[in-house]
Amino acid sequence: MIPSQFEFRAPTTVDEAVELLSNGMDVKVLAGGQSLLPVLKLRMADPEMVVSLTKVDALRGVRRDGDQLVIGAMTTHAEVATDPLIAAHAGLVGKVAGTIADPQVRNRGTIGGAVVHADPAGDMGGALLASDAQMTIAGPTGTRTVPAAEFFVDFFTTAVDEDELLTEIRLPVFDGWGADYQKFTRVAQQWSIVAAGAMVRTSGDQIAEARVVLTNMDSVPRRATAVEQALAGVPVTEEAVASACAAAAEGTNPTSDLNGDAEYRRHLATVLTRRAVLAAAGHRGT
């Protein structure tokens, strides 16, 4: 319950923060702290320095920049979940933000912190993947941009190096798309056992285009491209969508744990994908 001693810095600019990361010490970046602090309290880590981004005002908030939405890395899940711009143009991201952990955690936890933490059961990664997000990373030599598809590398590992910071997330606007996130848990505050996210653009009674992502089906969030292709042009009916989603788990590599084995997760992925796609397509379920 009591973390080890560490030095604490709370820079006010990104440049200062980045500079602190290459000071030769074992540094941990503190965003919302909702994953880091439990680890520190359990003493599963003892960094020499903690660099808090809480005072870097530039990293907060959601804005529109041309045909993109820009979400500052320090924007909280609660802000993302209730932001009107996001609700209008990036529905899946907003919906997913509202399912993360619990209200108190959403009030402190940040989108940047969550995705850099890169827990395979973390919910936001998939939504960013489905949204073709571009991740802006600041480092000692300036900033670079990495697409979400290349951002998630492995369990708890992203493209952000130890001397770098994720500063913002850029999303192309998705107007006229329906979105749904089917998060499967045993109790409300649990991490996703499996979750499926879908963004669907319909044309008449058909699915024109779909984007489908899976959470906790691998070491990183996975896009179900085969399902997406199969869904194109499919009528919005239970049977047609189910058949297109049947292969949702193909190519995934889920773990087995206390909440279910890999086979169960594959099955869940299929069911949840179908439900998410139908809901995103505005299908009134049975």
């Binding site: 359990l42 599963m44 395979p120 059961a121 492995d154 369990f155 991490w191 070491s219 773990t255 087995s256 744990d257 206390l258 909440n259």
Partner: peptide, 17 residues
């Protein structure tokens, strides 16, 4: 000990890697 509790099934995958 504690690392085993932190598993959610990941320990095996991580160890494997």
């Amino acid at each position: 000990g504690k690392p085993a509790q932190f598993g959610r099934g990941m320990i095996q995958s991580i160890s494997n890697k």
